[in-house]
Design a protein around this nucleic acid. Sequence first.
DNA 1: ACCTGAACACCGTTCAAGT
DNA 2: ACCTGAACACCGTTCAAGT
Lengths: 211, 211
Amino acid sequence: MRPTRKHIIAVAIALIERDGVGALSLSRLATELGCDVVSLYDHVPSKSALLEAVAEAVASGMELPSMPEASWEIRLRAVAGAFCGLARTHPRCAVLAAATPGSARAKRSDEYVLAALHQAGLRGPDAVPIMRAFLAYLTGWLVCQAGPPGSPADPRPTGRPSLRHREFPPVTCPAGELHPTDPDADFEFGLDLLVDAIAARCPAPTGRMLP
Amino acid sequence: MRPTRKHIIAVAIALIERDGVGALSLSRLATELGCDVVSLYDHVPSKSALLEAVAEAVASGMELPSMPEASWEIRLRAVAGAFCGLARTHPRCAVLAAATPGSARAKRSDEYVLAALHQAGLRGPDAVPIMRAFLAYLTGWLVCQAGPPGSPADPRPTGRPSLRHREFPPVTCPAGELHPTDPDADFEFGLDLLVDAIAARCPAPTGRMLP
DNA sequence: ACCTGAACACCGTTCAAGT
DNA sequence: ACCTGAACACCGTTCAAGT
């Protein structure tokens, strides 16, 4: 059975989501595909190249809608939503995809965020650092939820991603105020925090488009 | 030559910084230590336990000064500075340390940030999501600079951490405005953005302590 | 009782031997 | 010319054989 490159990547993604990046091996992948290990080298030059392809494939599933009518806030929230969607559909590949530098995902979301900021009246030297801060927040959120791939924390049981802090609450707490909270609500909160901060730096008074 | 646990971890850190996490193997570590591989198992139960110990050791070097006289902004900036210091002294272990969930580092910085926010007048349900957003930004910054450990991007030549975007500029750019910028300045900018946003949610007018 | 070398199951990758 | 199995160097971990 000769596998196609698409099929190889698809099964690799499934394996990573099931058992973690650390559990992915070419041998396992080959047996899963029902072919010999060496046949993989016809489509993928090395294991690290396979991982890059996986990151690219997963990230390309990230939807960044064009929405010609939408405000810049809606656009920024769309990027955030795309990150969340990635974390929901491919929790273990998401970190790989989100943090692999220079990926097509990185370029696409860079430009998408820059376009939104452009729409908000933020240009060049003003926009780029804001874009980086915004994407750093989204990436950090992803990583804080999932842990870095290949880390000792990686081969955990899969499931809905949840904050680790629930399982490891701090021993002491200054005001004893660290109750478990809803990760989604926390994410939204931090997003609001950033969007408001960005709006405060906008030339336009409310940041919305004028009629 | 019987190695001590401390020595094992120290050499492991050095090896990771020199060649990347992916290049760390118990065999290599043993030869570097001048002992047999199996002797390592006297002090470390497994390789993943070793990686956790490395993360913990590196993170424990993060300095969070108490500064009883300082304002909450200064404290928050101290945490950011500690993250930066980590990225500077141990670029490759930093991501491991910053993103390993439930680590002592996580608990310490959680509490430190909460204490600073408490000082700013932010309590309980107000403070926790802000803390998470703040640390997510710092973590995301670290990961965006270094790439996730074990990722295809990891075994790169070491050096001063720099933004990947310099090497992979976007092909197209909405306003053609994505010139290379100073990573440190960008980091400071995002930090200011967040601190300002937090200050805007503070009960106290300026966020500074009253005399 | 304790240490340690050989041994085991696995890994990524290569390459020469077959078709 | 092309595919593929055996082979290579390495890996994490175990365990029985030695002291």
